[in-house]
Amino acid sequence: MARMLTFNIFRFNPQDEGSKPKMQTFKIEETDSMTLFIALHKIREEQDPSLMFDFCCRAGICGACGMIINGRPELACHTKTKDLPKVTTLMPLPVFKLVGDLSVDTGTWFRQMYQNSESWIHTNKEFDPNAPEERMSNETANAIYDLDRCIECGCCVASCGTARMRPEFMAPAGLMRVARFMVDPRDQRDSEDFYEIIGSDEGVFGCMGLLACEDTCPKDLPLQDQLGYLRKKMGITAIKHLIPGRKG
């Protein structure tokens, strides 16, 4: 006998003057290999076409479907109903501005983050179309890729104590972005330059070390290690500032 699943879903349409925030209950029958992607579309197409949520690749690659599933930030597309209890509560991610129901605006937050972290290669070298590519060790390429795997789903931001309290905090995703460029030899910024960006309470010194980000990252990024590394590196840079006679 298939289970009858109950979903308590947060509902609010800020664009509809008649809408008030509330929880609404939906019931659907579970089928084999059902994920929240399947379940939520079924609810929208068969029970309530106004239900708002975000999916895109539905394969765990794009990061669109972050939401709070029974209290934890997760990607809905790879959440299987067979791993859920009979009653599931779905809430939108906090920190990000609500679009409606389970849909939030991560785009605006992350685009601001690119500017704050200067999320691009800083170099004064010009590209020469006639020259072969600059060489790089495969090890370095893999190290960059490993930190470049963030899919900007917002789960780490939603689970970050500091980000919840202080909107100006760069949050784990922002700090990871800086770490990605620190390991990239093509980026000519030095420790001092990175200190300008993250050497403050809005940056790496604002992290309280609760490390929920490490627990909730759906891509298993090495957040704990990187935050530790950044703090150490920026700590050293900060101490250098105290040494008399040193410029900077």
Binding site: W120, F127, P129, R135, M136, S137, I144, Y145, D184, R186
Partner: peptide, 18 residues
Amino acid sequence: PIEMRRLAHWGVPWNRIV
């Protein structure tokens, strides 16, 4: 080929020959 090199210049971590 030129485009792949350009992307490398802009920051793509292409896998490299070992």
